[in-house]
Nucleic acid binder design. Structure first.
Length: 539
RNA sequence: GCCCCGUUAGUCUAGCGGUCAGGACACGGCCCUCUCAAGGCUGGGACAGGAGUUCAAUUCUCCUACGGGGCACCA
């Protein structure tokens, strides 16, 4: 299905919220927006949706700029570079939303609601127990507008809700799905303006998209179900809605929506572990999308420009693509191999150089580096993304030292408990500092009943992949939370897999066999060569 | 629970009524080779199930199953 393109210039946007680490999903949607804009000689806008005061942060906003730049996305307008329809940060647009909201209030398309959070919770709980769709029950819908206004003026807290039609249907034209029809009775009287005076996503989004002249809203599928509300808003304002394109959601291996619990979702993780930005972009361009050569075979490797050259969003496939690290690594290898050796050297060095942890890492390994040649060996656990855990590492992960292999099963269970506790603590840590890390590690080990030495060894191996490392807490700090959590979860998966134990034992027995053979070989070699001549002696 | 979207091998995908169902990652084998990679060749592996429409369904329609998303004063 071709994407409708009006005659006026194309304007698209991405609108990330600056909460937490810059997300691969943002880059994914950004890629398709940027490519679409470029293909139509349009404009790509970056808008920051920071209306959630509690969760938004400036640091996160900066990280978004950094990471999007890293993958090679460039926007034409945004909070950092300005543009003709700013401001581009929603927290700076409060007056605009309030003004538009007043308009809806005046026309009767919206109304004030004084319901308490407790009452709303109660209503929802009741509805759920009656197996109905949970939504606002319209308690304040009939309130007299003048009276409500007076109450609000008197200082009573309230929100402003959209008055949705109570019958009929809303048809959502989606460029990839055709029209999707919603029964209006299913829909909620969505809150538009929160009691803190800031808009919700829905209001801000519609107002901004209109005011910024957005022609195509290319966003993730999770928004499809709220599009009818947005359409009602456009109608209430008397505005023409944009073309909607809902992209499939990136998935974890188990097909659920991609999440940091199950996958590294932070772009910084990939940057740090040495994924080339062009490989990352290429990989994202393969998610739900494909290009083919004249023979009809799929093209796996392509640049942004090549993607733009024959872009057709209508070819996007709707099944949720699993974000497969294996394939990402393969593509990355493709790019690394295509570099001239001098370029590779240059880029690898630049990669090391741009890592802000350089000094911290150097100070940790300094004592262990008799000559520069040893530097790479000691530094590598800090720069890698995921780690491989060999035989010895697996034993140690299971909480076993060489002395206590007999206690394997018991220890594996205890070490699982350590890692589970630790992941929980590290996720919750607000302060990623060495003392906080130390406290978390100590408490996790103590709670499990594993000896401090064995427990810390298991954690060290999980964190660094080897039993010898700089001091653990400092090392964990330098590795960083995102990467460390990826490693811990990897280890958890290993420990939860009974095959790991079998494999470890199997590997141990073949190692033993190899040792036996080596011994035999050595014994024979040590004997005086009496009859080594002639083939007959071999028997 | 209700609403919506989806479903080609373990994974990413091609296919848009008639194909030996194509390519790629991963996996196995062989070749190359001082090792390891890389590369080449090669093998196994898929249309979720059931009805219908049609001379003909992976492709169109419906039902079922399964997966996912949404149902906040979060985006």
């Amino acid at each position: 299905m071709p994407i409708p393109v009006p005659h006026h210039p194309v304007r698209v946007r991405i609108a990330p919220s600056p909460t937490g680490d810059p997300h691969v999903g943002t880059a994914y949607i950004g890629l398709f927006n940027a490519a679409f804009a470029r293909a139509h000689h349009g404009t790509f806008v970056l808008r920051i949706e920071d209306t959630d005061q509690k969760r938004s942060s400036l640091a996160s906003e900066q990280a978004i700029y950094q990471s999007l730049h890293w993958v090679g996305l460039r926007w034409d307008e945004g909070p950092d570079i300005g543009g003709p329809v700013g401001p581009y940060r929603q927290s700076e647009r409060s007056a605009i939303y309030q003004h538009h909201c007043a308009q809806l209030l005046a026309s009767g398309a919206a109304y004030r609601c004084f319901c308490s959070a407790e009452r709303l919770d109660q209503v929802r709980a009741d509805q759920r127990s009656r197996k109905e769709t949970a939504r606002y029950d319209g308690y304040c819908r009939g309130l007299d507008a003048q009276h409500a206004q007076a109450q609000a003026d008197a200082g009573q807290e309230c929100v402003i809700r959209l008055r949705m039609p109570t019958d009929g249907e809303t048809e959502v034209p989606d460029a990839l799905r055709g029209s999707v029809v919603y029964d209006n009775r299913q829909m909620d009287d969505q809150v538009l303006l929160k009691s803190d005076g800031l808009p919700t996503y829905h209001l801000a989004n519609v107002v901004d998209d209109h005011l910024m002249g957005i022609t195509h809203v290319i966003r993730a599928e999770e928004w499809l179900n709220s599009t009818p509300k947005h359409l009602q808003l456009y109608a209430a304002f008397g505005w023409q809605p944009p073309v909607f394109v809902h992209m499939p959601l990136l998935r974890n291996a188990d097909k659920s929506k991609i999440s940091k619990r199950k996958n590294p979702t932070s772009l910084q993780f990939y940057q740090r572990s040495g994924i080339l930005p062009e490989a990352m972009l290429n990989f994202l361009g393969l998610m739900g999308y494909s290009r083919k050569d004249p023979e009809g075979d799929d093209i796996e490797k392509f640049s942004f420009e090549e993607m733009v050259a024959d872009l057709d969003l209508g070819r996007i496939s709707l099944g949720g693509p699993v974000f497969d690290l294996e394939k990402l690594r393969w593509i990355n290898g493709l790019y690394i191999r295509s570099l001239a050796p001098s370029q590779l050297a240059q880029r690898a060095l630049a990669w090391l150089d741009e890592d802000e942890r350089a000094g911290e890492i150097a100070s940790l390994i300094q004592e262990r580096v008799p000559e520069f040649g040893d530097y790479l060996h000691h530094a590598s656990p800090f720069y890698r993304g995921t780690l491989d855990y060999g035989l010895q590492a697996r034993y140690l992960l299971m909480g076993c030292t060489a002395k206590k292999k007999t206690a394997v099963r018991l220890s594996a269970k205890a070490s699982r408990a350590v890692f589970e506790d630790l992941v929980g603590q590290f996720e919750a840590l607000t302060d990623w500092s060495v003392p906080a890390i130390e406290q978390a590690v100590r408490s996790a080990v103590e709670k499990s009943g594993v000896g401090l030495g064995d427990g810390m060894m298991a954690i060290r191996v999980a964190a660094c992949g080897r039993p010898a490392s700089p001091p653990l807490f400092e090392s964990i700090h330098a590795i960083g939370r995102a990467t460390l959590l990826v490693r811990l979860r990897h280890v958890q998966a290993l420990l939860a897999d009974p095959r790991m134990l079998v494999e470890a034992l199997h590997a141990a027995s073949s190692e033993l066999e190899a040792a036996r053979q080596a011994l035999q070989f050595a014994t024979e070699a040590a004997q005086p060569a009496t009859d080594t001549s002639g083939p007959a002696a071999a028997t």
